[in-house]
């Protein structure tokens, strides 16, 4: 009974992983590939295009961690102040919704909302600001990535924090109220400390996926006018490998990303185990 599962993993996971030896070879359509050692890596690291891609990946990932990470925590704290009832249910159901939409759909929604006649520009008009074409603006496109990711995930990501808050004993709050603590003080001295271990775990997990920088999102929100600002490792691999057919070269870029990702995940796993007693698995 174990066999179907194992066969599946061997064919669809192990074989393509072993196949990544292609990074050290030249691809041949007919006949055996030939070994070329580190050739592709040497080209990779001396190519300004690849260095730019690497920079973009790091910048976009960092922006997302800095600006998005705190939002679900704040959201959870706010939702926690809403009494159980229809309003809380409404807030939660609505804020979780974007998580279930594909990035193709979200791109469609945002492209329309950010268009020169879209909702954002109407709000800008109200404040007497000039209309902007966000999707083709090199200055703004990374912020489009940050805000659309926030729109999609902040609600859903607050779930883990809400779960942590719900485990806090109500007696603590009762005692605090008797001592005259107001809402903000209760947040500061009871709720936040109780969430700390969840916050650390989620933060470390996020670091583990740093090199991804959100492929699906960038893939759907990217266009020719802004590509220099948002081209990340995976979109680069896609373009060089699958569109241009430079399989070996693109696999080298993939392998580089995979190894960094592996180091990050393993180190964050052990860090997390050390600080919170919980690992990635």
């Amino acid at each position: 009974m174990l066999l179907p599962g194992i066969i599946f993993f061997v064919i669809f996971h192990v074989i393509p992983i072993i196949g990544m030896k292609l990074a050290f070879q030249d691809y041949r359509i007919i006949g055996e590939n030939i070994w070329v050692g580190l050739k592709h890596f040497k080209i990779l690291f001396s190519s300004p295009a690849f260095i730019d891609v690497l920079k973009n990946t790091v910048i976009i990932s960092s922006m997302k961690i800095i600006f998005i990470f705190p939002i679900p925590i704040i959201l959870a704290l706010m939702v926690n102040e809403v009494r159980n009832g229809p309003y809380r249910k409404y807030v939660q159901s609505v804020s979780y919704l974007p998580h279930f939409l594909s990035w193709v759909v979200i791109a469609g929604i945002w492209i329309s909302f950010l268009s020169p006649n879209g909702g954002i520009n109407i709000i800008r008009e109200f404040f007497q600001l000039p209309s902007l074409d966000f999707m083709t603006s090199k200055e703004h496109i990374r912020w489009v990535l940050v805000f659309s990711e926030m729109w999609r995930s902040a609600g859903w990501d607050s779930i883990l924090y809400i779960a942590a808050i719900m485990k806090i004993s109500p007696q603590l709050y009762e005692a605090a109220k008797l001592d005259g603590a107001n809402t903000l003080q209760q947040m500061r001295y009871i709720t936040l400390p109780a969430m700390a271990s969840t916050v650390i775990t989620v933060f470390i997990l996020n670091l583990g996926f740093f090199m991804n920088a959100g492929f699906d999102q960038v893939f759907n929100l990217m266009n020719d006018s802004v590509i220099s600002k948002v081209d990340i490792l995976d979109t680069y691999v896609y373009r060089i490998g699958l569109l241009n057919g430079q399989y070996a070269y693109a696999t080298a870029a993939s392998l580089f990303k995979g190894v960094i990702g592996l180091v990050l995940i393993l180190s964050t796993h052990f860090l997390s185990k050390r600080f919170t007693g919980k690992g990635v698995w």
Partner: peptide, 18 residues
């Protein structure tokens, strides 16, 4: 083995070639 699979994803290129 399963955990190893969770932490190391194959490249989209080699998956495509497969």
């Amino acid at each position: 083995f399963l955990i190893a699979i969770m932490v190391f994803e194959p490249s989209m290129i080699t998956e495509y070639l497969l």
